[in-house]
Design a protein around this nucleic acid. Structure first.
Length: 917
DNA sequence: TGCTTCACG
DNA sequence: GACGTACGTGAAGCAG
């Protein structure tokens, strides 16, 4: 093994401890005993970040030792102006050191010198790259091509060029520069009235302190006099600011390896100081560590990211709180002038149907933001502008199409504003969607985006509202904290937009998808969500009862068969009964090595003639229906609308699909007769009917288009049953002689193709042996040679560029396509085959939704779009409008995209969703 | 919280 | 030569 090129990381613990202590949001943190813990949190988070970002092999955390240093001997007044360490900080010092040690970091404190000197010495002794993490500008003197600085609190990174940019002098001139300025806090005398500007100017003119002193008589004016007066003590100042790089250390930089954490000690310390998140992740890490040897040891090198510079100086922000009408009007004037602003609503709930606005924040340029509190109502909350009156005042701004809004997840803000009668217009940009279109694999939440792209750790909601049962709603959060949090959200949204937008503009397809598809979809989805779907709660309750009876009977039967009582819902207990007690054979194991009891296994065992597995299969499916659907759906009915309102996640699926949550209305049963009954509870208002339209075989049609395979294109052009057509080809049998099994096999092949199948998978699906499955696959590819070529092309493309694209250029990155681990690589290859088809289908139905929505609105239609299920749209339509609506929407869906195969849309109408299908 | 299972396209 | 083996989701229940 060669040594890695990872930098040695040296952390100036003392400088961070002081800085963290004075951060307002950290200042207030204590445990339940009232012991302050904020500075500890601050330092530890910073260490986490470094460790995560750089995965260092060598690292040290250095603190000042107590007692006098050689500088005190040089100059008795050194640091004499420093106030004593506050008690609230002092009390955090020792425990912090203990935690750092227990976490496994080498920790250094050397008597007689300062942390800076230890760091300087280690940096100069180390052979390879060094990264010094500090918030102390004095360290700039250590920078060269090999040694760089990072300030983990302000997210700034500095190499020699960075130092010149920041200070206006080279790293080797920093000592001269510091000596000229002096330091009032440390009581280092400099030249009176010489600050950063003058010092940099003199140094650039004269090159060095020595030369400046030699030419002291040439400096005119008051500062010239001051310089001459300082001549005697400047050498001393120079000595004081010079970091000592030859401290006698009893160790070598190569000794600074991270040790394994002492989890027992950490558990004790985290418990004592109530670091609950760390306590939780402690359990996680131990299991991870236990699994580690299994992982491919080279895998981790694949994902090391290059160091990045950043441009945010997060210390320089101007966040204001708006309490008066005058202040509000002042800000609105600024917003008007800017023509574009980011904004964010703060509310009482994540549920958009229940949420009420508590406040609104805006940002008009990076770092300049304001929070307008409107409904904080905790005891002692300061008076605020009246919510309803102020929202009425804001309404024309928010509804002004020409005033461009930038947000993070604007769909939510739009929904919430509608609760107050405001229909947000001028939706210009949504950073969540920008991130999604650029790389759908990322997390697109505010916190992750800031962390990743701005290298800034935002204030998390939990930081100000707490968590768990005691979590406050936003109206109970103190305005001061709320204000920083909310203003930061708006500020970060704007900065993220400034970061993403140029990237999107550089990629034509991405920009188009974002501007013409994802952005317009916000309003469509928001409308669907708020419309909701009517549910027959009584019918579901009745079904629940029936299920309950059947389940309890089956329970008894199962106990009899097993010879004992057990929990049928517990895979673990079931496993004991089946395999230990009854001695049935273990068919398959789960990924963690447990004996699996999933459908495949139970079916296999049932086929062998065992009664209990057969019973369990039915029990499982009924129990699922009851708990997930018949019991839960009625609970999710909104009391005001009498309907169920799902949330569509526009950034939920990496392929471009939507997903649906709370509740998930995209997985309502249909495959089994029992399950289908649940669809009968999805009903229309009186006078309305449900209209369901779905794309027939859309992914296979897309495969035909993308591959250009003549056989497949012809089959679709002639409107053939595609599975039969495939069966005719593969089994070389005339259409009228086909058996049902042959069609079934052809269907499995067609689906398998979309999923990037292997012969093994097909064999298992069809219950045939592998060689037979392989034969089918070979026959298929012989008949449809361009499909084979297309699959190969896609694999090559994925391999070459590490992403694949839909017909419209939507990208899916496949980071694992070059993984050394074959299993993971092959999984990525299958995803590469599937994504262009699944993703193109998703793009097409999104286009259809937008055009349908446009038509519905422009024709003042009484019909409303209520559900999207990947290739299906469901509408609630006034009976009088049924025929026209059905015909027009079919047309719009069919023509949503033009492929080299026709798109076919099938539709149905009914009193409920089952009937409409 | 992680795992397992199962509902959908 | 062995291993694992079809894509994409969300939710519920159990167990620790």
């Amino acid at each position: 093994m060669t040594t890695t090129t990872k930098p040695l990381i040296l952390v100036d613990g003392s400088s961070y401890l002081f800085r963290a202590f004075y951060v307002p949001n950290l200042r207030v943190l204590t445990n339940s005993r009232g012991e302050p813990t904020g500075a500890m949190h601050g330092v530890l988070n910073m260490l986490d970040k470094l460790r995560k970002d750089y995965e260092p092999d060598l690292m040290a955390v250095v603190f000042d030792a107590s007692g006098k240093t050689f500088r005190d001997d040089l100059y008795p007044n050194y640091k004499a102006n420093r106030p004593p360490m506050p008690d609230e900080l002092r009390s955090q010092f020792e425990p912090l050191l203990e935690i750092i040690r227990a976490q496994g970091y080498p920790l250094l404190m050397v008597a007689g010198v300062e942390a800076d000197d230890v760091i300087g010495t280690l940096a100069s002794e180390h052979q390879g790259a060094v990264l010094i993490s500090t918030s102390d500008k004095d360290m700039a003197q250590l920078v060269d091509e090999r040694v760089h600085l990072i300030n983990t609190m302000s997210n700034t990174y500095a190499d020699p060029a960075g130092i010149i940019e920041k200070f206006g002098v080279r790293p080797d001139q920093i000592r001269d520069y510091l000596a000229l300025m002096g330091d009032t806090v440390d009581n280092v005398p400099g030249v009176e009235k010489v600050g950063p500007k003058t010092a940099a100017k003199w140094i650039s003119e004269y090159g060095s302190l020595e030369n400046i002193m030699a030419n002291a008589e040439k400096f005119g004016g008051k500062v010239g006099e001051n310089l001459r007066a300082a001549l005697t003590h400047l050498p001393l100042s120079y000595q004081l600011v010079t970091i000592k790089c030859d401290v006698q250390l009893e160790l070598d930089p190569d000794d600074l390896k991270l040790a394994a954490p002492n989890n027992e000690k950490l558990r004790e310390l985290y418990t004592r100081y109530e670091f609950s998140t760390r306590l939780r992740s402690l359990g996680k890490e131990t299991t991870l560590a236990a699994k580690k040897p299994l992982a491919d040891p080279f895998e981790m090198f694949d994902e090391i990211e290059p160091l990045e510079k950043t441009t945010i100086a997060s210390s320089k922000v101007d966040y204001q709180t708006i309490f008066t009408q005058e202040a509000l009007e002042h800000w609105l004037k600024l917003i008007r002038e800017a023509g574009e602003f980011s904004f964010d609503t703060e509310t009482t709930s994540l549920n958009y149907m229940e949420a009420e606005i508590v406040g609104v924040s805006f940002a008009i340029q990076a770092g300049k933001a304001a929070y307008l509190p409107l409904a904080h109502n905790y005891l002692g909350a300061p008076p605020q502008l009246n919510r309803e009156a102020t929202l009425a005042f804001l309404k024309p701004y928010l509804e002004d199409e020409a005033l461009h809004k930038i947000g993070q997840n604007l769909k939510y803000d739009r929904n919430v504003l509608l609760n107050h009668g405001i229909e947000l217009q001028g939706l210009a940009h949504d950073t969540m969607l920008e991130s999604y279109v650029l790389d759908s694999n990322e997390e697109h939440g505010m916190d992750s985006l800031c962390e990743k792209h701005l290298h800034h750790t935002t204030i998390h909601f939990e930081d100000i509202a707490g968590k768990g049962k005691k979590q406050l709603t936003f109206n109970q959060v103190g305005i001061e904290q709320a204000s920083t949090y909310a203003a930061e959200d708006a500020d970060m949204t704007l900065r993220l937009h400034q970061y993403f937008w140029p990237q999107l503009q550089a990629l034509d397809d991405q920009r188009k998808l974002y501007q013409s598809l994802e952005m317009p979809l916000i309003r469509v989805l928001s409308t669907m969500e708020r419309t909701g779907v009517k549910i027959d709660a009584k019918l579901l309750a009745q079904q629940s009862q029936e299920l309950e009876q059947r389940l309890s009977e089956m329970n008894k039967q199962a106990y009899a068969l097993a010879g004992q009582a057990f929990n049928l819902n517990s895979p673990k207990q079931l496993q004991e009964i089946l395999f230990d007690k009854l001695g049935l054979p273990i068919v398959q194991k789960t990924s963690t090595g447990q004996a699996s009891t999933d459908v495949n296994v139970l079916e296999e065992l049932a086929d062998q003639g065992h009664e209990l597995p057969k019973l369990l299969l039915e029990y499982r499916s009924l129990s699922k229906l009851k708990s997930t659907y018949t019991d839960k759906l009625p609970e999710q009915i909104n009391p005001n609308t009498g309907r169920v309102h799902t949330s569509y996640q526009q950034t939920g699926a990496a392929t471009g699909r939507l997903s649906s949550t709370d509740p998930n209305l995209q997985n309502i049963p249909i495959r089994s007769e029992e399950g289908r009954r649940i669809r009968r509870a999805f009903i229309a208002e009186p006078g309305y009917k449900l209209l369901a339209l779905d794309y027939s075989q859309i992914e296979l049609r897309i495969m035909a288009h993308l591959s250009g395979d003549k056989g497949l294109l012809d089959a679709f052009a002639q409107g053939k049953d595609i599975h039969r057509a495939t069966a005719v080809e593969v089994f070389n049998t005339p259409l009228d002689k086909l058996t049902n099994d042959q069609r079934r096999a052809a269907k499995a092949i067609n689906f398998g193709l979309i999923y990037g199948m292997s012969a093994f998978g097909l064999a298992r699906q069809l219950g045939i042996d592998r060689s037979e499955a392989q034969l089918y696959v070979n026959l298929y590819f012989a008949r449809y040679p361009d499909v084979k070529a297309y699959m190969e092309r896609t694999r090559e493309q994925a391999q070459a560029q590490a992403y694949v694209e839909t017909l419209f250029g939507r990208r899916l990155f496949l980071p694992e396509i070059r993984a050394r681990n074959a299993q993971r690589r092959q999984a990525a290859e299958r995803a590469a085959i599937n994504a262009p088809m699944q993703g193109t289908a998703a793009d097409i139905i999104k286009m259809a939704m937008i055009s349908v929505d446009t038509w519905l609105r422009s024709h003042k239609s009484g019909a409303r779009m209520i559900l999207q299920v990947h290739d299906e749209l469901v509408f609630e339509v006034p009976e009088a409008e049924l025929d026209e609506t059905r015909q027009v929407i079919t047309e719009l869906m069919v023509h949503a995209a033009t492929l080299s195969v026709p798109l076919l849309v099938e539709s149905g109408v009914g009193e409920n969703w089952e009937e409409a299908h």
